[in-house]
Design a protein around this nucleic acid. Structure first.
Lengths: 253, 253
DNA sequence: GTGTCTATATCGTTG
DNA sequence: CAACGATGTAGACAC
């Protein structure tokens, strides 16, 4: 069996065969087609006739791409059930259970169908995330301020979950809200919500709130100052490596 | 010229030819390959060897899909500049200018490359958005409450932009925050931020805040009540049609 | 361009 | 499963 199978201008029968083969062997499908698309679920949409690329993955993910934009024009997430119906016009139907969503693609003309029996055991190793900012703060708390002691990570409070909760050198409670990119109004609102919750839960205690991010928008800065909150500049650290991938062992050598 | 061109197990030269053809004629490219991926920009990532599908669009969009999930494992947004470099290993390089981001894909083995010269003049017609909730409220304000009068849509206030600003039958200011899906803590924080801004800007005035959504999480409900804000249940309306697509005219008939 | 917000957001994690 | 928050969020729109 080859890794890739292709049929140009397939008949409905050829289309169905490759569709079934991909299903059985857990291959990915790519279809070039002129099609119409109907979606109904959380919202509802219609897409008139045009040429698009359809991608169907063995986990049920379903993507329809036009020739612009990073985002698919229509899609179905993993877990959806897909089938090919040979109506007057061959139609791909994908159903998601919860919430119930249906995607139908009428294949008016299929230029190419291909199946790819991909083998892939690697996972992305990403660096520069908010989680790595937190790790840095715990390993080197002085990046926040001298004497800062982080105590909890992802600490649930009354109205949400605080990124980092600690104490300053005076013993005051300190809430950190971390953002890996420029902090906006939303980030300030979030921090304010946590600070207010902690003040309620700790009457009489001083509770400081610090927004930690590489930069901040003008509007967020205004709101931050009005609320008596603080800002500490910090870049998300980019490591050389991060272990997350499955190791490839060569036992048999 | 056919709509689709395919090369199985292409040589680097064949790969380059189809790559250039797609570029020149604004076609979409699909490549099945065993590859490694390196990304550096806002963050940094590495992806070890494995089989993936690569999609390159004429607008510069660049997607690398593994066989699971709706999201590409790596990507580049529209506007990026892509080129094929015939090094020891053929390598696709995509560069984004602002922010500066580089994506490199080493093609260790190319199983298939295909170009699709897609023609598509249709745009998605979507219904059930937040914008349509707002339209419904303006055309039929009683869905909020008897006597409600919406005055502004997307009204900038001190710390953000209010979805709908109006007055109730008593003449009090009313801020609506619309959500097309279940409202969460973020939605309540947002509403609270607007209400507080409007109370500051209108001293002495009563300002009500109403969260309008199909449902609300338990935590959001708690915070909403504590803050003296209100909830009004409303489903995003799904229309039969919505005009957004380019009309196909048949002048010559 | 920056700032603000929506999204059929998707995704991971936790209770 | 619901809830909560991150995301290299992307995309749209106003200023």
């Amino acid at each position: 069996m080859r890794k890739a199978e292709v049929r140009m201008e397939p008949t409905p029968k050829e289309l169905a065969e490759l569709f079934d083969l991909a299903r059985k062997l857990e291959g990915m499908l790519i279809i070039f087609a002129r099609c119409r698309v109907h979606y109904e679920g959380r919202a509802k949409s219609e897409l008139g006739e045009g040429d698009r690329i359809i991608m169907i993955k063995p986990d049920g993910s379903f993507l329809i791409h036009q020739k612009k934009k990073r985002e698919p024009v229509n899609w179905q997430p993993p877990g959806s059930k897909v089938r090919l119906e040979l109506r007057n016009v061959p139609t791909i139907v994908s159903v998601r259970r919860k919430p119930r969503e249906i995607l139908e693609v009428e294949l008016l003309e299929t230029y190419m169908v291909s199946a790819f029996f991909a083998e892939d055991y690697e996972a992305l190793k990403l660096s520069g995330s908010e989680a790595e900012m937190a790790a840095l703060i715990f390993s080197n708390p002085d990046v926040i301020e001298p004497g800062f002691k982080p105590l909890f990570r992802e600490k649930p409070v009354r109205h949400g979950i605080v990124d980092v909760l600690g104490v300053d050198k005076e013993g005051n409670l300190v809430v950190l809200e971390l953002k890996r990119r420029k902090a906006d109004l939303h980030a300030v609102s979030q921090l304010k919500r946590y600070v207010e919750a902690l003040r309620e839960e700790n009457p009489g205690k001083i509770v400081r709130g610090i927004l930690v991010a590489p930069s901040i928008t003008a509007g967020a800065q205004r709101l931050l100052e009005k609320e008596g909150l603080e800002f500490r500049r910090m870049e998300p650290p980019k490591r050389k490596e991060k272990r997350k991938s499955r190791q490839k062992t060569l036992d048999f050598l």
